[in-house]
Computed example of a mutant assay.
Amino acid sequence: MPLDFNVKLIEEFRTNAGRLGGPFEGWVLLLLTTTGARSGREHTTPLGFVEDGDRLLVVGSAGGSDRHPDWYRNVLAHPTVTVETGVDTWRATAVAATGAERDALFARVVAAAPGYADYQKATDRVLPVVVLHRIPVSDYTPPNRLDALADELVKIHDWLRGELAALAEGLAAPGAAELTVELRRHCLTFCAGLAHHHGGEDAGLFPYLAREFPEKAEVFERLRVEHEGVARALDGLRELLARVDETGPGDLRPEFDRLRAELEAHFAHEEAEVLPLLRAAAPAP
């Protein structure tokens, strides 16, 4: 859609809680806000969608043009997106389907909205199908005591260890010819959760403890460097996941194994150094 067309449509959509009038009356759309693959800036695009259980399907049709739409390129680089339906706004993980899974989902889309079949006939490009998985809103409240925070840190690490084990099992599953939407979603959700966890430590917890325990400056510098190493490993994992048409479990496994080894060592080091400080900084009962 032309930019000025999009701007007017977005404005009307948001003003009228998703209801459109005039030439757009009866259109059922969502607004997808993505992060630019190169610019890093947010971009909002009106898109048709098809419901598929508790997830939504959107198609990179671009009106049947021979070029993938920009929003699709964006979600390959940055899979965390914002979805607006007019009555609800939520964060989602956007995962492109591939192979037989993509074909089955496209058939489901065409059954609900036959116009997409015409778009596919207009181009030799395989129209991508992207699955939008809602990211649950956490009701977690950070502990207001440092000793409780120490316990919570262990719980978070144990959850991340469990996710690593589950991902390893999925990647090693016999007969897995390609990465399914669910497996890629699991990987991307894990990456986002880990990045959020480390971002919170770098922005809040570690600076606080560094002020309380200046003699431990080298410890927090090493932890910061470890976070940078993990971030690079996450970038490598996301890059492989973005190449949805050529990535398989065999290509992904070495990068995942490297990330898992780094994380196991990092968690052990962090718990050995940080937990005693949290316990020591906690006020006496």
Rank of each mutant, 00 (worst) to 15 (best):
E169H: 03
Y140D: 15
L132V: 10
R41E: 15
G60I: 03
E262M: 06
G250R: 14
R243L: 15
L31N: 06
E163R: 12
G63W: 07
V7T: 13
P23Q: 05
A203W: 11
F213T: 08
L241V: 09
E101P: 00
D257N: 10
R73D: 14
A261Y: 01
L209G: 05
L32Q: 04
V131A: 00
E226T: 08
L127Q: 00
R102E: 03
A210E: 12
R260L: 09
V110T: 11
D251W: 04
A173Y: 11
I10N: 07
G162P: 04
D245W: 14
V137C: 13
A217H: 10
G162F: 10
T44F: 06
A284G: 07
E255Y: 09
T89E: 12
D139W: 12
S138E: 13
A117E: 03
P46L: 15
V110G: 02
D235A: 15
R19V: 10
H157V: 01
N6Q: 15
H269C: 00
P276H: 10
I10R: 04
L278E: 04
A203D: 07
N74W: 07
A231V: 05
R41L: 14
L153H: 01
H197C: 00
E182D: 15
P276K: 11
L30T: 05
G175Y: 14
T180H: 03
G64S: 11
L9G: 06
R260N: 07
F190S: 06
G204L: 15
A148H: 08
L153S: 02
A96M: 04
L171A: 04
L237A: 04
R67I: 02
A177I: 00
F213I: 08
P79K: 02
P69K: 11
T247W: 08
A100Q: 13
H186R: 14
H68A: 11
L30W: 06
A113L: 15
I135N: 09
D151W: 03
T85D: 08
P174Q: 11
D118E: 13
G60A: 10
V225I: 14
D52F: 05
E246Y: 11
A92I: 06
C191V: 05
L263F: 06
L194V: 12
T98L: 00
L20D: 07
N74H: 14
V87E: 13
H198A: 02
E182S: 12
P46W: 07
E152Y: 06
R67T: 13
D257W: 08
A172T: 01
G99Y: 04
T15W: 00
V274T: 08
F206Q: 03
L179Q: 07
R260V: 05
V181F: 04
